[in-house]
Amino acid sequence: MKNIWAYPADVGYQGQEPLTGFTVETPDGTLGQVERQMNEPGRQHLVVDTSVWVFGKSLLVPAGIVHSVDTAAKTVTVTHARDKIKAAPRFAFDSQTAEVGYLTEVGKYYAALGQPAAL
């Protein structure tokens, strides 16, 4: 199993520049905008504001599901559809990003989804 908490090597992005404000795209549309990101090894993830389609909700998106980063277009494309990401363990507050139990739960959820067939 790949590391869900690290950007895939083929993405060509390892946390070099901030992604805050980038639009996050899924195979079926826009997910939202990157509010914050964590680049600590073993815990790399994005916190995405989804107010464009789910009023007032943020989601934690592990770096391992990032498919591509386009710095010129300011977009991050992820591998899974919006409904799969929306069904992930609920992100309610920032301190959860430091909670081992929460991160384990999120990691298990995405590992169980596996890789989508194609983008």
Score class of each variant (00 low, 15 high):
E25G: 05
V54R: 09
T26I: 03
P41L: 08
V52E: 09
L59V: 14
D10V: 03
L119W: 11
T23D: 05
T26R: 06
L113R: 06
I65H: 05
G15Y: 03
L31Y: 00
T23L: 08
I65R: 02
V47L: 15
L59S: 06
A118V: 06
P18K: 10
P8A: 04
K84L: 15
L119R: 10
R36S: 15
V78H: 01
M1E: 10
L119A: 09
D70Y: 05
T50E: 13
F93I: 15
A9D: 04
G15P: 03
S58A: 03
G114F: 02
S68F: 06
F93N: 12
E99H: 06
E35W: 01
G56I: 08
G42R: 05
F55W: 14
G12R: 00
T30M: 10
S51A: 09
P62Y: 00
T77F: 02
L119K: 03
P27H: 07
M38C: 15
S95V: 12
P89D: 07
V54A: 11
V47P: 01
V34P: 02
G114L: 04
A118K: 09
P8I: 02
H67E: 06
Q16M: 14
D28C: 05
G32L: 02
W5V: 03
D94C: 06
A98N: 13
S51W: 07
N39V: 13
T20F: 00
V52K: 07
I65W: 00
A72N: 08
A118Q: 03
A87S: 12
T77L: 09
N3C: 10
T20K: 14
T104H: 10
F22N: 04
I85K: 04
T23M: 12
H80G: 06
W53R: 11
D83R: 05
H67Q: 13
G107P: 08
A117D: 12
Q33C: 12
E17R: 14
H80S: 08
D28P: 00
V54P: 01
D94K: 10
L60S: 02
G56E: 13
Q115R: 14
F22M: 07
D70R: 07
K84V: 07
G21Q: 07
Q44R: 08
T71R: 11
I65N: 07
A117M: 05
Q115L: 12
R43C: 12
F55R: 09
L19E: 01
K86W: 13
I4M: 11
L119T: 14
V100L: 15
G114A: 08
